[in-house]
Computed example of a mutant assay.
Amino acid sequence: MSYSRLALVLAAPLLLMSCLLTPGKFVSTLDIKSDRSFTFTYAGEVVLLDPAATMSSSSGTGANEDGEDDGTKPARAKPIPEPETAERIAERRSQAETLAKEAGYRSVEYLGDNKFRVDYAVSGKLDRGFVYPINTDLDSIIPWIAVEIRRDGTARVKAMAFGEKDSSGMSEASPTADAAESREGTFTFTTDAELVMHNNEEGLAPGPGKKIVWTVTPTSKTVPTAVVRFAN
């Protein structure tokens, strides 16, 4: 059994109990200061996908008659194929109201076709890790972006939903990788802290300060990543 297939099997019980949120058209920013203060924003679309359909399409393609991986890429997940009945629309609007209760959401609107428009902004102190999005009421899983705080005074930023690794990495097996066709936007990272590393081939964008802009498309492979060192 391939590594990608094993990852999907291990994730299956959790996926079947949860909803899957993935980016649509968006503009997102993250600013981290040397004193550990930060501001994160996401303005744009959130698309709701069917995890069961993702698992089915991923496990049903790319295998030979013996069940082994034949090297072909799994089919991508599609939005939930349920009709837009009055009951379904009411359910989605209720989900939008649930999401809007979370701190940081300035607005949440259901657009139809399992697509929401959100305006999110949060500021705080990085005395611990930060991830987005997480919502226990919606049972949403697989954060799009995470800031990992390390003991050596650095922080690693990784925007998993804005890119894909190659077939040897976990993200190729993840449902967000299969659902990448809906995403289109930019992720801008700024900081006045020491920039230890980043993986944007275009380098720094015109400032002020240190600024990196990743253009995100359905075919983006690079997972936006950066490491900064705090002043203390």
Rank of each mutant, 00 (worst) to 15 (best):
L10K: 05
P13F: 08
P13L: 04
L16M: 11
L16C: 11
M17V: 03
M17E: 12
M17W: 05
T22F: 04
T22G: 03
T22H: 06
T22C: 10
G24H: 01
G24Y: 00
G24F: 02
G24A: 05
K25D: 06
F26L: 09
V27L: 05
T29M: 09
T29Y: 06
L30H: 07
R36W: 06
S37C: 01
S37A: 04
F38H: 01
T39N: 11
T39C: 13
T39H: 07
F40I: 01
F40E: 02
Y42W: 02
Y42S: 05
G44N: 04
E45C: 00
E45R: 03
L49V: 01
P51N: 07
T54K: 03
S56D: 13
S58K: 03
S58Y: 05
S58H: 07
G60Y: 07
T61P: 00
T61R: 10
G62N: 09
A63I: 15
A63T: 12
D66E: 04
E68Y: 04
E68A: 08
E68K: 09
D69Y: 03
D69W: 11
D70M: 04
K73I: 12
K73Y: 06
P74Y: 01
P74A: 02
A75P: 00
R76N: 14
A77I: 08
A77Q: 06
A77H: 02
K78H: 03
I80W: 03
P81V: 12
P83M: 14
E84Y: 02
E87W: 04
I89E: 14
A90W: 06
A90D: 03
E91N: 10
R92D: 02
R92Y: 01
S94K: 14
A96L: 02
E97P: 01
E97Q: 14
E97N: 14
E97C: 04
L99V: 02
E102T: 14
A103V: 07
A103W: 00
G104N: 04
G104P: 06
Y105T: 13
Y105P: 08
R106W: 00
S107D: 12
V108Y: 01
E109T: 15
G112I: 06
N114F: 13
K115G: 00
R117D: 04
